[in-house]
Each structure stands twice: as C-alpha cells, then as structure tokens.
Amino acid sequence: MSADILTANELVVQSDGFLVSEMNGEKVMLSIENGKYYNLGQIGGRVWELIASPSSIQDIVNQLLTEYEIEPGACEQQVRAFLQQLKSEGLIQVRKE
C-alpha cells in the first residue's frame, strides 16, 4: 500500500457516474461507464455517504468514532486502506485543500 495517499491537507470526494442503492443494509453501486458492480458493505457505505462532500481523512475518522465502537488508530488505518481501494477503482477523487 502506498503511503502517499491522503496527507492531512488532502480531501476526498465521491466520483460521479455511479448508481447507488442498498441491499440488506449494504451499499451497492454500479458504474455507469464500465458496468462494474461494487459492494461497499455497511461501514464502507457509511464512509461513502460521508464523502458526498469533500472531507479529510480526519473528518471521516472523527465521525465514525462517534458512530461505532472502534479504537482511533485502528479506525484510521482501516479507513485509509478502504479509501486506497476506492481510489484505485476510481470511485473517489482526491483534492488538495
């Protein structure tokens, strides 16, 4: 995993071009462009909602800490890995603050 994704002053936001729905509490998406399906799961789906507008990784982690029982360090690590995946699939855009 590359360490250069998401420095403290970078913001992430949803990419356009996906159809979004839920199945049994899990966020499912379909890329209009290439017809690929994505299952973000439940917490992943919550992260997706949080990045409807540009957010820093700290914004996302802080919000998740209020909603889930999780240790801050572990939370940040998992969010970082998840965003890395979303980025490699083109699901998010990364911007400078």
């Binding site: 159809l19 729905s21 199945m23 499912v28 209009i32």
Partner: peptide, 19 residues
C-alpha cells in the same frame, strides 16, 4: 433508461427485488 433519466430509479428497484 439513461434517456429517460431513470437509471438510478431502476438500480434501486432491482436492488430491492434482489434483496
């Protein structure tokens, strides 16, 4: 569906059916 601007509605409908 895209001409009708109903892609998102269709996706939500089939997701509900599939669950």
């Amino acid at each position: 569906l895209h001409l009708l601007n109903l892609q998102q509605w269709q996706f939500q409908s089939i997701a509900r059916l599939a669950s």
